[in-house]
Design a protein around this nucleic acid. Sequence first.
DNA 1: TTGTAAGCGTTATCAC
DNA 2: GTGATAACGCTTACAA
Lengths: 327, 327
Amino acid sequence: MVGIKDIAREAGTSVSTISNVLNGKKNVSEATRERVLNICRELSYYPSVTGRALKVGNNNTIMFNFSDFDRSFYLKIMKGISDYVNDNDFDLIICTNKSGEKYMRNNLSRGCIILDKMMKDNVLLSVANPNYPIVVLDRMLDHRCIKSVVVNNYDPMKEMVHGLVQRGYRKFGFLGGPEYTTDNKERYEAFKDALEEDKIPFRQKFYFKGDYKEKSGYSAAKIMVSTQMMPEILVCANDNMAIGAIKAFNSYGLNVPADIAITGFDDCDLAGAMGLTTISIPNYERGFMAARYLIENIRGEMNTEPFMIPAKIKWRSSVLEFKSKKI
Amino acid sequence: MVGIKDIAREAGTSVSTISNVLNGKKNVSEATRERVLNICRELSYYPSVTGRALKVGNNNTIMFNFSDFDRSFYLKIMKGISDYVNDNDFDLIICTNKSGEKYMRNNLSRGCIILDKMMKDNVLLSVANPNYPIVVLDRMLDHRCIKSVVVNNYDPMKEMVHGLVQRGYRKFGFLGGPEYTTDNKERYEAFKDALEEDKIPFRQKFYFKGDYKEKSGYSAAKIMVSTQMMPEILVCANDNMAIGAIKAFNSYGLNVPADIAITGFDDCDLAGAMGLTTISIPNYERGFMAARYLIENIRGEMNTEPFMIPAKIKWRSSVLEFKSKKI
DNA sequence: TTGTAAGCGTTATCAC
DNA sequence: GTGATAACGCTTACAA
């Protein structure tokens, strides 16, 4: 590996001069600057991030941590982050589950965006400090150096359920995601509250449990069919499970929405193609805003008011416009 | 930041002892080991990756470089990589476009997997060495420390075109991707060769140019319609463009496959849902194998025979089983 | 304008 | 079994 010393030797100067050139310090003659730069190019020298980070204590890198590879819209979040970060001359490293913590504790990054549910709250609370701000997606954390960027799950979900009631649906089923996740909790709360406001009873036996993956939706739907526990409308906590459920119902010869209506949450690519009624989250913007707040906070702003992203209902063909009332 | 020195002070030992404990050296008494470990936990000490990397010259981290956020199956490749890497106690950092080169040139990673088309061949050729092996996806590079993992585009594409001819299609259009990419070249070659073997003429004016993105397929299709240059079957170099084309045709009231048949390449999620005939690439396996070869090569194997991943045709409803011949 | 030298957090070598 | 110390590549006072 070619280092600063090699350049210095070749240029016949000291290492500090090289460093000065590289860091755009003004105390170096135009001649030397030129010469040094040329040599760097010739020897294809790249300053060592580790050497620099070790000395300086930081660099312009932020980290993004995620782990659920089944949620394909994560790519959109990444793109949002990546675009903002690039425009602001920061570098981005993305890492998954366990490595994340390791890279936070060091001076490899100056801040991070966390989407990984596996990352524990108390770790984040203990790591965050004025020199290492954090942005968390989809969770609320109260700390003066942590900004929460959360989707407004509650309002659109409630509105959608009211809309379903208006369309004539009465017998509701709910297919939930992992129960420790905030978004699942909020979606379920909104669902229950809406029914309560509309004075529609909801029985616990119509609550089914999934894990946000397509397979779990498939299994849950099969159970509904085989145990004859069919609701008129199955509200799912995300699209993947809704899609799994649709496939399962279809495999039994059941038609969506004629035999059973279904809704999702996320508006993934497939949802559009399959005509799934769902709630659309602006993912690119979500990533972009997260990166923006993080970098602003790194630069000293330290604005940590929770930021709420609006989501929008997409009515599609998986629910009927007017469900004919029974009898 | 709590460092090895703080632990040493707290434990009343020297830093070397701490280091020895941390690295599982045997020359340390059980008592001290226990004590040190406890203190590390109490102070929530995490060894600095930078310090270590600087000293040791490497660590167990590999890098994955990509940049096209529109290709949603990239997540599957990542998952394949991530799974293998985790099982082998390596860390993974993912980065996009320009940062990639920076992180290669340093001792931050011990090797990398490259999918980013923007990464120049000559950079890779100059960086690869026995201590820094590279695996490239979707491109062929001849270097004793670079392994190419490529999809067999040619054979299944040729087979598919032959199949289309058998089904009665004669008037072919081709919608290509970026022309500098190997996969586009191979797919087009196979397309032309198959037609030639079947003695079906292909006229250059039925070659349309796209960039692998949905939008470009949409535009190309609109041009076909408005200039009356409609083929019977439009073979697209990837799914995204095929999907764009389908949307455009539908917007003109044209039916796929009745009015025009379409095929894609990739078998993305949407392809299944839309009934697009396409060629399926085992992406998870692709990532997994890439990671496996890379880590084996880091461990000294240095097997750099190109590895070819098979791909499989998925016949779906976007082409007719039997096209009734004209006249 | 340029050079010297200390130090960032770690590990390796060698002495004790 | 334990501890001093040099070294990794870099930046930054400070000295020249």
